[in-house]
């Protein structure tokens, strides 16, 4: 007796056990995070004007890029969902959006710490900061649509639509705030990236990739949990049907 007749139709592969692939992905992600910690704290040079504090930059930029990457995954999966109506894309979008919000929260927390020590202000309405803040709010709103009541396919449709609009909005927000910020504020913030030395660039690139692997591992795990939850819901529906009869 199998519960899952419509497995094919859902496009899901229902398997809740931890597999070898899982362990490998996790292993690589953890190892890369450890190596990147070594690169950040010991290997890379200390920046001359800002001092050791400048090293916040590695985790900050690493998480920021991967938050964007996660939202990119949401965008692509949203389009694919609307085009194919396969539930698996909705599952990926759900998970990626949640992890993206976690990453952007890290960005929003580490940013002010760096800003406070480097520029002596907690916040400045600089284009990158403004657009990160708006990005944060867009995906909070996305999560609010997720929490709506109703059937999954309705939520999936609305989320997909909002995921597309939200992602298209991001570059426009950046452009607008760049124009706005440069007009009404003196440059409090110096251009970063100008004075990066070789081993700093290496540390940065490595950290970005380490977080990308971490992101992949998290999405992988999140998707499996989400599939298990769908499976659970199916079982409950089946049982309810049986009892009802």
């Amino acid at each position: 007796m199998s519960f899952f007749k419509n497995e094919e139709e859902l496009g899901l592969n229902l398997n809740t056990r931890t597999t070898l692939v899982n362990h490998i992905v996790y292993g690589i992600a953890f190892a890369m995070i450890l190596v990147s910690a070594y690169l950040i704290f010991i290997y890379s040079n200390i920046e001359k004007t800002m001092g050791a504090v400048q090293k916040i930059f590695y985790v900050h930029v690493g998480t920021a890029w991967n938050a964007l990457l996660a939202f990119g995954v949401v965008f692509v999966c949203s389009i694919l969902y609307l085009a194919t109506k396969k539930r698996i894309y909705d599952v990926y979008a759900t998970v990626a959006a949640e992890i993206g919000v976690v990453f952007i929260i890290i960005v929003m927390l580490t940013g002010p710490i760096w800003a406070r020590s480097a520029w002596n202000v907690w916040w400045s309405w600089e284009p990158k900061l403004t657009s990160a803040l708006i990005l944060f709010f867009i995906y909070i709103a996305y999560t609010m649509i997720r929490f709506m009541d109703g059937s999954w396919d309705k939520k999936a449709r609305l989320c997909a639509v909002f995921g597309i609009i939200g992602f298209i909005d991001v570059p426009i927000v950046y452009f607008a705030s760049e124009w706005w910020g440069s007009k009404f504020h003196p440059t409090v913030v110096g251009q970063e990236g100008g004075g990066l030395e070789g081993n700093m660039v290496f540390a940065l690139v490595f950290t970005v990739f380490a977080f990308s692997f971490f992101l992949t591992a998290l999405i992988h795990k999140g998707v499996r949990i989400e599939k298990a939850r769908i499976e659970l819901q199916h079982m409950k529906d089946k049982i309810a049907e049986k009892i009802g009869r």
């Binding site: 910690a37 950040i40 050791a52 504090v53 090293k55 916040i56 985790v59 900050h60 998480t63 976690v102 929260i105 890290i106 927390l109 580490t110 710490i113 760096w114 406070r116 020590s117 971490f214």
Partner: peptide
């Protein structure tokens, strides 16, 4: 201290 705070916040959240 700022660096350690930021790094530990990151790892704590992750």
């Amino acid at each position: 201290t700022f660096l350690y705070t930021a790094y530990s916040i990151t790892m704590a959240i992750l």
